[in-house]
Every structure is written in C-alpha cells, then in structure tokens.
Simulated scan of single mutants.
Amino acid sequence: MNHRGVEYTVAMTATPGVWKWQFQLGDEIKSGRTETRIALLAIRRVQLRIDRELKKAAREPAT
C-alpha cells in the first residue's frame, strides 16, 4: 500500500486481533505491531504513524 509516497505493509499475525506493519523512510525501516480486530483501523494507525515520522523528518535539520 502507499500513503503520501511511502510504501507500507500491514499483515495479520497468527494471533487474532494483532497486526504487524512495516514501512521505510530513507534508509530507516520502521516496523511494529498494533492490536485491533478491524483491518481498516490497523491501516489507519500505520498511516498516522507515517504522518508523524514525515513531520518529524521535516523538522529535523538536514546534516
């Protein structure tokens, strides 16, 4: 999937209601898990995380 130009994945785990996600910004790979029974909520949480990371990257001065 793609959000604001960032490719990401969200996949259900063997544990019901737990989703794992991953995306890459530059050279850094971010990954984690979220708990919800609703697939669209898991996707939305990853999109919000991408938004936070993009905002954080924009604030940091380029070195």
Rank of each mutant, 00 (worst) to 15 (best):
W21T: 03
W19R: 07
V46R: 05
V46N: 05
A57E: 12
I50H: 11
I29C: 14
L25E: 02
V46D: 02
T9I: 14
I50V: 10
K30E: 01
K56G: 02
P16F: 07
A39T: 02
A62E: 14
R33C: 10
R44W: 11
A42F: 00
Y8L: 13
E53P: 04
T34M: 07
R37H: 06
T34Q: 06
A42S: 04
K56A: 09
G17D: 02
E53M: 09
A14W: 09
Q24T: 11
G26D: 10
A58H: 04
A11D: 15
N2W: 09
L41K: 04
N2H: 05
R44K: 11
A42K: 04
A42T: 08
V18G: 09
I50K: 13
L25K: 12
R59W: 04
E28N: 15
I38D: 08
S31E: 12
S31M: 11
E28P: 00
R37D: 10
E7I: 05
E7Y: 07
T9R: 14
I29Q: 15
Y8M: 14
I38N: 00
L41C: 00
D51Y: 00
K55D: 04
K56P: 01
G26A: 06
R59I: 01
K55P: 02
K20S: 11
R49I: 00
R52G: 03
I29Y: 05
A14T: 09
Q24F: 01
T15C: 13
L41T: 04
G5A: 07
T36C: 08
L41Q: 06
A14Y: 14
I29F: 05
G32W: 00
E28Y: 07
V6L: 01
V6M: 01
L48I: 07
R45G: 07
G32E: 09
T36H: 10
A58T: 01
Q47F: 06
V18P: 11
P16Q: 10
E28V: 15
R4S: 10
N2F: 01
G26R: 10
A39D: 01
L40I: 08
T13Y: 05
E28S: 15
E7R: 06
E7D: 13
A57Y: 00
V18Q: 14
L25D: 03
V46P: 02
T9G: 13
L25M: 03
R33N: 12
P16M: 07
E53Q: 09
Q47C: 05
P61G: 12
K20N: 15
Q22S: 15
V18C: 13
E28D: 02
A11K: 15
T15P: 04
D27K: 14
M12K: 14
L40S: 04
R49C: 05
K20P: 04
E53C: 05
H3E: 03
G26Q: 04
K55M: 03
H3W: 12
T9V: 13
E60D: 03
K56W: 00
L48Q: 13
E60G: 12
I43M: 06
T13P: 12
I29H: 15
L48S: 08
V18A: 14
A62N: 13
E35W: 03
A62L: 11
I29W: 08
A57I: 03
D51E: 09
T15W: 04
R4I: 02
R59F: 02
R44E: 12
G5Q: 04
R52F: 01
R59G: 07
A11Q: 15
T15L: 06
H3Y: 14
E60V: 12
K20G: 01
T13E: 04
T36N: 10
R33Y: 00
I43Y: 00
